[in-house]
Each structure stands twice: as structure tokens, then as C-alpha cells.
Design a protein around this nucleic acid. Structure first.
Lengths: 395, 395
DNA sequence: CGCGTTGACTAAACTGTTTAATTCGCCGCG
DNA sequence: CGCGGCGAATTAAACAGTTTAGTCAACGCG
């Protein structure tokens, strides 16, 4: 356990003797740990061990310590080991933030969502995206910084507490690039994010930002759903969607779906009143709420189109609870074709979208932008992937 | 649009004239934006506008610029507005990392998981936790930094690529505190995290760390499940759990559940061979896999206990696909009592755990530690909340 | 008139790393 | 013996903010 470097070289700092020091360390390792824990409980503010402390103790320059970790070939083997030993002895922990400041890399990507985190994380589609993004981050040894843009909405859109200023908000997001999911062009923060000069990729959004965009054919999928229901003879429809601006958040893909469905109905020669739109906030709970709203409409629809599968599944279970028969009393069509849609009773008719490759493409593009392997200009945008209706027993 | 401050006061820097400057800005605002975008496409490395640039341009000290944002009352109204105008004009964006370095706050909490992010994010229980944590972060205006400890596992545990050194790993996690979920004491990184001197809270873990721990009564819940099945007359059991160390990760709560179940069976006087353990990797897919594994056992069990509900639900659908009757051909009991457990067909018997208050308590404790409102020593630990068996039709 | 106070603002130190440029000694070579 | 080159380690300058301890002038007051 003696420090080989010390035998071969005299370090500047005379009072540091490897052999002596190490014998002390070895004998009191456990006690040392315990006592430091005690101190820690007394005061968290204990001065942190910095790279400079290690350098001083080891009798080398700070640069040498940095090299010991980041550029081993710049140092002789002996010095390197001596430094690492010293660092271990002092309990040195590098400061992530300082390192980031100097290198310019945070090794994190910012995942920005328009709603509250709570809301988004209860949406199975989003958590599925998160899984795909996680897989990519696993590969790149990056982290996900999950941040909600909800707090920054002005007071009139989001009743409640004061909005967080874009300045304050952005200046606390340390990420190398941003993946924005479900962002509408009306969002007051999107321009600020763009100005931050970091790479951005958009997913399921509507935006004027100069950034690669990955969407799906919301309009076409919803249009097909309406055609299907019209062919089945339905003439009275409901669309179940999110509370519009009630929470201040606009999810653009939902809007496109509503438009697509309505357009098909209109083109079939039916009056606009044939489509009634019901709103419900929440995610998981929105289904039940939506069902109530539909069932208490004066003109009861015979078919309901939901902007997401979670809502549709909730309506199914609401209908079951009410003793209704799906599809005879009410036909239900969802959007997204979650795995659960196949397993529900009855199995849910839904607009299928590719849940995997779209986010994969987006996150890969983001990493390529961050690593400067590609240029924004190289990307044909927006990238729109197909949707198709999968008919099952619920319609 | 003229700068009121300029009218009242002469700024040191003579070549900055608010009125003149502003007229230029106004007339070329769009062009300016466009050309800057062009530049940006050419080189991302364009020098960033710093606080010092703003100070120079505005003819004030850097301190004043900082005050303009962070301590407005220290400055006269006029100066403050002048600075903000100048900052806006230059397109100043504060640097999150520099700010963090100086203040010592990242406004992010590190959520550390033992598996790959991909794995964890497909687990509905975990994403539910994530939702609760997200809600707390919404309130505290914090972000979630999602980081996987999987990469740091040594090669012999995790075949594949080289492990990331704890040093490197930790030095890229910029968080004010850590919430660790499902961490086993055997994990090589947990000690390193503790040494980072930042607050830690553990959830569903097994650990020697000096940190508040929030667990549930895994052993008791599994024990009750076994008793229930024994009372129903079952004598041949299977336990469906995760691949043990095959992916190198040990989830301690799963282990406790296996132990609890086995112990009850043993205490009933049955031989150890009455409990066969089947392993499956994956999360969502693990259910189907588990079912296959169970159904091909030489001695077929009549009842299966799953360490999680996802697995149990997968087994249900596997059995359905095979044309089996649950519970007649195979009784199924899950653990966790997810909302989906009530909706499955047949509804799933499961060990109920409180999914909400446990993570809420954990995250609240973490924020209190970070804000130094409480001390580690104040917390009675480990905190263990009750579980209870909810019997439904699957058993 | 001298003294203490207040308001507005600044200089300098501080946060903890990385990295480009440089020095220093040593070795081999012409 | 001088010189080029090399390996090892150092110096100093970033990185981009915050914060402490002031300075300085104006002001009120006894």
C-alpha cells in the first residue's frame, strides 16, 4: 500500500509523506468514515474538497489533478497514481457544475412539456415516449432533464400562482439540447427557448421554430376514423378532448384531430351540429368525466371519437359501469393504439400510430445536432409519419 | 420606445445612445433575427452574449446587471429598466450553469434508478411514482434529472460495454439531492453517491446508507398472499420475478416479496420444492414470458404469485390467449394493486400498497433536507407502510 | 458644521474546473 | 557543444455568473 511514486520522487510539499500518511489512513479508515458522518450531521456546509485541495496535498499543480482523470497520458504513471491516491484519501468529489461550466457539456437533454409534469407523466403515451428517449440516453450516457413549461404561462391562461419569468425559468435548465413534446406555436416560452441557441427538436408539435419537427398524420387519422363511423351509419357524434385553454395549455395534435374528424363529417353533408365536442381535464380520470359529459348531452351521440386512447379506455369502463353495450349503445374510437387498446373489453378501435420510431428518430436527431454531426438545414422538416385506422369491436 | 433612463441620466459609455440605438433596432428587428439565424447555421460557436457584455453596453457594472434580475430593489427603477432593455437588445441569455456554480443551487433533483431508464420507464408503478414526484417538483419549481445507475455496473454483472467509472458518472449529475428508487445495498455506486455530500432519500430500497428510507411491508404482503392461496387449497406454487443478476440489477423489494411468500409456504409445512421460481427479464413483455415459463414447468403449479402487477397482468393475458381459465386452471396474485388490476378480466387479486403517499412523503422529505428545514437525524427511519391483500376473482 | 444614515452603485473576490500555451530538463544527434 | 524534439508538469486564462464589502454623494438632524 505504499505509494510507489513517493519512493522515486521527492514531492514539493515536504510534510506530505506517502508512507506515513497511508499507514494512518489504513488504520483509521472506518473511524474516519464514522467521524466524518458525524460532522456531516452537524453541518452540511462543511467545506467541500476541491481539486485545488488535492493538488496542494499531493504537491502538484491543479492541472495535474485534472489530467489524472481526464488526460491520463499527459502524466507519468507514478504521478497519476499518487494523485488518485491523494484524492481518494481526501474524499475528493469533482464538482459536476464546475466541470460543465468549463467543458460546455451538461450531458443532459432537456425534455420540455407544456403541461404540468404530473399531468404528462400520467399519460401512458408520454411515458412510452419517455422510455424510448431513456433508451437513447442510456446509449449516449446522457440524462433526461424533465422540465415543465407550465409554470411560465401567464396568469390569465393559468389561474393560480404567479408565472415564472422566462428568464428565470430558462436560466435553471442546464441541458445540451431540447426535445419539446406537444408544444403549440402559441406558447409564450417557445421563442425564448429558441433564442437560447441550443439545438431543439420538436415532437407532436405545431411550431414556427426553425427546428426539426416530427409529427404524425393527425388529420388523416381522425378523418379516417370519421369515415369509418359514417360508413357504419352513425350520424350523431361526440369528440372527447382536453379542456381547451382551461388549463392554458394547447396540445396541437389534439386540435388537428378534432379538425380532421369534423371535416370528414362536414364533407359527408352533415351539419356542424352533428359533432358535439366535450371537454374534460385530467388524464386517467378524463375518460370517466368524458363519459358523463357525453351521456348527459341533450342530443345523445351514437358514436364518440377520442383524441387519445386513455380517454377512450376510460369511456369504455364508464360505459361498462353504466351497463351500456359498446358498440351497440355507443361506438367508441380512440387515437394512438396503445398496447392496452388490444386488451380492453371490448377491444378498442383506434387510429394506429407508430409509437416507437417517431420518438426514436427525434431523439437521435437531437443527439446528432448536439454532437454537430448534422446541421438543422440538412433535415427535411416537418417529418410526418402515417397513421391508419385499426378497427376492432368497439365500433 | 425611447429609454426613459437615458433621458434622465448620462451613462458613462458615450457611444451608447438609447434613442439612436433603439431606432436602429426597431427598423431592423426582423432582418436582424434572420441574419443571426443564418450565422447560427454556419457556426453554432458564435460567441455568447454574457452579463459582462450587457454591463459594458449599458455602461454599468456587472453587479448592476446581476442585481437587475436578482435583486431589483438594489437598483433605481430607471437603471433597472435601462439594463433590461439593453439585455433584451443584445439578446442576452443567462447561463444556467454559471448561475448554478455561483449560487450552489441546481433546482433539480436527481432521480436515480438501478436499471436502464428504458426498463424503468416501462413500469407503470414507476411512472406513477414519477407522476407524484413530478407534482412535487411542479410545486417547488424544480426539475427532475432522470439518471440510470445501470451503466456503472461492473462488466461481470452487466455484460456488454465497459462500465462508466463512478467518478465520471457522478461528476455529470448536477442535482441538489437524490431520490433513489429500488436500490440494493450491493450496488457499487450507492457509497459514492453518499460521499457526494448531498441529501439522499431512499424509496423501496435496501440500504446501509445514512439516509431516510421509505419502504413498504413487502414481506408481510407476500406472506398474506401465500396464506390466502394456501387457504384456497393450493399446494404447488410458482413465483414470477425478475431475472436475478442476469442484468446485474437487484431490486430489493422483489427479493423481500419472494422471501415472504416462500416463508409462509414453508411454515405451512410444505417442502421448498413446492415453490418454483421463474425468472423473466423485461417489464411489459415479462408477463407473457413468465406465463410460458410457468406452463412449461415439469410440475405445473396451480397458483402463481408475481412480484409485480405488470407481470401478473401479462400472465392473465397469456393465459387468456392459451384458452385457460383463471382462477380454475391457474390462480394469479399480483403485487402493487395498480388501477389496472381492478379493470382486468378477471379482476386481479393483488397485494395493495399505497402508491401515492409513500413517494409523496419521500419527495417532501428530500425537499426539506435540501432546504435544510430538517436534519437527517430528525427522521425516524426506515419508514415502513402497510400492505394488505385485496382478493378479487383471479384467485 | 460634523455625524450618522441611506440609496445607488461598484470593485474584487469567489464558485471549481478545463485547456492552450509555455517552461523545464533531458536525450540523442549532427 | 549546440540544437531539435520530446515527455512531464506548470502557468495563466478562460468559463459566466453571484456576493461581500465597500465607495461616494446626498440628506436629515442636533
Amino acid at each position: 500500500m505504499s505509494c510507489s511514486a513517493c519512493r522515486r520522487r521527492r514531492w514539493r510539499r515536504r510534510d506530505f509523506n506517502c508512507n506515513g500518511q497511508w499507514s494512518v489512513v489504513n488504520s483509521s479508515k472506518l473511524d474516519g468514515r464514522d467521524s466524518s458522518q458525524g460532522e456531516r450531521l452537524l453541518s452540511r456546509k462543511r467545506k467541500r474538497v476541491t481539486l485545488r485541495d488535492v493538488a496542494r496535498q499531493a504537491g502538484v499543480s491543479p492541472t495535474a489533478v485534472s489530467f489524472a482523470y481526464n488526460a491520463p497520458h499527459q502524466l507519468s504513471q507514478a504521478t497519476r497514481e499518487h494523485i488518485l491516491d491523494t484524492a481518494e484519501y481526501l474524499g475528493y468529489q469533482p464538482h459536476p457544475v464546475a466541470r460543465t461550466l468549463a467543458t460546455g457539456r451538461t450531458n443532459a437533454i432537456g425534455l420540455l412539456v407544456p403541461t404540468s409534469l404530473n399531468w404528462m407523466l400520467h399519460d401512458p403515451l408520454f411515458t412510452h415516449f419517455l422510455g424510448e428517449i431513456g433508451a437513447a440516453c442510456d446509449r449516449e450516457e446522457n440524462r433526461i432533464l424533465l422540465a415543465s413549461m407550465y409554470e411560465t404561462l401567464p396568469r390569465d391562461l393559468r389561474p393560480g400562482s404567479e408565472p415564472v419569468a422566462p428568464f428565470t425559468w430558462l436560466s435553471s435548465i442546464a441541458a445540451d439540447g431540447f426535445l419539446m413534446v406537444g408544444i403549440d406555436r402559441s406558447h409564450p416560452l417557445s421563442e425564448a427557448v429558441q433564442r437560447s441557441q441550443r439545438p431543439i427538436v420538436l415532437l407532436d408539435s405545431a411550431s414556427d421554430l426553425q427546428a426539426p419537427t416530427f409529427n404524425i398524420d393527425d388529420h388523416g387519422g381522425a378523418y379516417a376514423a370519421a369515415q369509418h363511423l359514417l360508413a357504419k351509419g352513425h350520424r350523431e357524434f361526440a369528440i372527447a378532448t382536453m379542456a381547451p385553454r382551461l388549463d392554458g395549455v394547447v396540445i396541437p395534435s389534439f386540435g388537428r384531430r378534432v379538425k380532421g374528424f369534423s371535416q370528414a363529417v362536414e364533407e359527408a353533408g352533415l351539419p356542424p351540429s352533428a359533432v358535439q365536442i366535450v371537454h374534460a381535464r385530467g388524464v386517467r380520470s378524463a375518460g370517466h368525466q368524458s363519459f358523463q359529459n357525453i351521456w348527459t348531452l341533450r342530443r345523445r351521440p351514437t358514436a364518440v371519437f377520442c383524441v387519445s386512447d386513455v380517454r377512450a379506455l376510460g369511456i369504455l369502463s364508464g360505459a361498462r359501469r353504466e351497463g351500456l353495450s359498446v358498440p351497440d349503445d355507443l361506438a367508441v374510437v380512440g387515437f394512438g393504439d396503445l398496447p392496452d387498446a388490444r386488451e380492453s373489453s371490448p377491444p378498442l378501435t383506434s387510429v394506429h400510430r407508430d409509437m416507437d420510431s417517431q420518438p426514436q428518430l427525434a431523439i437521435r436527431t437531437l443527439f446528432q445536432l448536439i454532437n454537430e454531426q448534422i446541421n438543422e438545414a440538412d433535415i427535411a422538416s416537418p417529418h410526418i409519419s402515417d397513421t391508419r385506422l385499426v378497427v376492432r369491436e368497439s365500433s
